[in-house]
């Protein structure tokens, strides 16, 4: 009798336990499944981010490590440096010279690749080729091509009677030269992303538009662009982040890698690098890293709003 009741009780408990497990399974497991990303992000993203913030409030040298707590002194210092503002100017200028043409040209290339052309795979592979070349190789080759005195570009310019351009001495030309490298490498990649999105646009829309007598250009602006809206936002946001963090190309643009004698093409990330690794001042470097982080967030948000404005006409009508 007692044995029986104990067994019953045990069975009841077991069922109850299974219930609890089941409830947990439903409630907890979705979070468990997505947790690897967040755990990894916390270790590799969030922690360094916060730690950089901690470093930026201290005197901190490369070797000596943590020094005194100085509050916002590092921020105050870098904000008072003309070099910081020059770097900010350069970063935005190079970003505009690269991202804008890049997105526009990539859209056009994608539209062309989306039509019925021969040897499709060949052309699609072709636009991706520059992406395969390492940025270091591109930077070195372009750096030599854009040499001020013996470079190919200036030789061509002077041969057709134009004045040589100070690609390494003047501010805007150096930005254009660096943006050229960035565009060379990324335009094809962005074009393929656009192409993939374009192929997902239902063909019925185009057929209907054709029957209505819409021209090719009209179809592009009234169907393709609105349909591409999420993709355009994605590309704009990622290229904003990439553009504001530009480092490889300007760093390898000349032999010293410090951004020119007058900081003509020293970007914010290069400024961080110089502060941290050359001047061994991690406190100031972290302060600039945080400022850059804030700028990127503001800019990514701005970009999002703008790109939603630009391409929302068609899709909003459908809603």
């Amino acid at each position: 009798m007692t044995t029986q009741s104990v067994a019953d009780e045990r069975a009841v408990r077991l069922v109850a336990f299974r219930h609890t497990i089941n409830r947990w399974d439903v409630k907890v497991s979705p979070y468990l499944y997505i947790s690897p990303f967040f755990i990894l992000f916390a270790i590799c993203g969030l922690f360094p981010l916060l730690y950089t913030g901690y470093v930026s409030l201290h005197e901190w040298s490369l070797i000596g490590g943590e020094g005194d707590f100085v509050g916002l002194e590092n921020f105050q210092f870098v904000l008072g440096q003309p070099k910081f503002w020059d770097a900010l100017r350069n970063t935005f200028s190079i970003f505009l010279f690269s991202s804008l043409p890049q997105v526009l040209i990539a859209l056009v290339i994608a539209a062309v690749l989306d039509t019925n052309i021969r040897a499709k795979t060949f052309w699609r592979m072709g636009v991706l080729l520059p992406y395969i070349v390492t940025p270091v190789a591109i930077a070195i080759i372009f750096g030599v091509m854009f040499s001020d005195k013996y470079g190919v570009i200036n030789t061509l310019l002077t041969n057709i009677g134009l004045p040589a351009i100070g690609w390494h001495s003047d501010v805007i030309p150096s930005h254009i030269a660096i943006a050229t490298m960035v565009n060379f490498r990324w335009t094809g990649y962005q074009a393929l992303i656009f192409l993939a999105a374009m192929q997902a646009v239902p063909r019925d829309y185009y057929e209907a538009a054709m029957i209505d007598g819409a021209s090719r250009v009209r179809r592009f602006f009234s169907i393709t662009i609105p349909q591409l809206r999420p993709t355009i936002i994605f590309v704009v946001v990622t290229s904003t982040i990439g553009g504001l963090q530009i480092f490889d190309e300007p760093r390898l643009y000349d032999q010293f890698g410090t951004g020119g004698a007058d900081g003509q093409w020293r970007t914010l990330t290069m400024y961080i690098y110089n502060l941290g690794w050359i001047e061994s001042n991690f406190g100031r470097a972290s302060a600039v890293a945080w400022l850059l982080f804030i700028i990127i967030i503001i800019f990514a948000a701005l970009n999002l709003i703008i790109s939603q404005q630009i391409s929302s006409g068609g899709s909003r009508a459908k809603k």
């Binding site: 992000f41 982080f293 967030i297």
Partner: peptide, 18 residues
């Protein structure tokens, strides 16, 4: 997603910097 991407991007840089 934008915010996540932005945070992740900046954080990767911060990782390198620290």
């Amino acid at each position: 997603r934008t915010a996540a991407v932005a945070i992740a991007g900046a954080a990767v840089f911060a990782l390198v910097a620290t």
